[in-house]
């Protein structure tokens, strides 16, 4: 586990983003145990209060849940996962589209380019 945080965005948001990525990519499965707050703080070298904040927010968004006196776990609700994936995709595409803004290029060309890139990545894997 290694994350490089930038210094200007709230750390708790960066921690949430990190976990969202793990969940979306399947590295963390539904119902998996989350690291303890203290452990995570130590691993990421951040303040335990910040981890607490991130966990609370994720609980609120139902990405994780905590039963009393037990470690937190990733949600077991597939609907939440689907919602998260949708959000993730939506965010990525929005970012991509806004990055293309300065260039005038037909949609079909872009689709071709995307296809090429994705094939390349698959080959690399």
């Amino acid at each position: 586990m290694n994350v490089t945080f930038n210094k200007r965005d709230p750390i708790y948001l960066q921690v949430m983003q990190y976990f969202k990525r793990l969940i979306v990519s399947g590295e963390l499965n539904l119902g998996d145990e989350m690291p303890s707050r203290r452990q995570l703080a130590n691993q990421l070298k951040i303040n335990p209060n910040t981890v607490q904040r991130a966990y609370s927010e994720m609980e609120e968004q139902r990405l994780i849940y905590t039963e009393p006196n037990r470690p937190s776990r990733v949600t077991e609700d597939p609907a939440v996962l689907n919602q998260l994936k949708k959000e993730w995709l939506d965010q990525a595409v929005s970012k991509f589209v806004s990055a293309l803004d300065p260039i005038d290029i037909p949609l079909d060309d872009i689709v071709d380019l995307i296809k090429d890139k994705m094939n390349m990545r698959k080959k690399d894997d």
């Binding site: 200007r8 965005d9 709230p10 303040n47 910040t50 904040r53």
Partner: peptide, 9 residues
């Protein structure tokens, strides 16, 4: 953390 959140500094 609040400073990062509210003022982005």
């Amino acid at each position: 953390e609040e400073m990062r959140e509210t003022e982005g500094k």
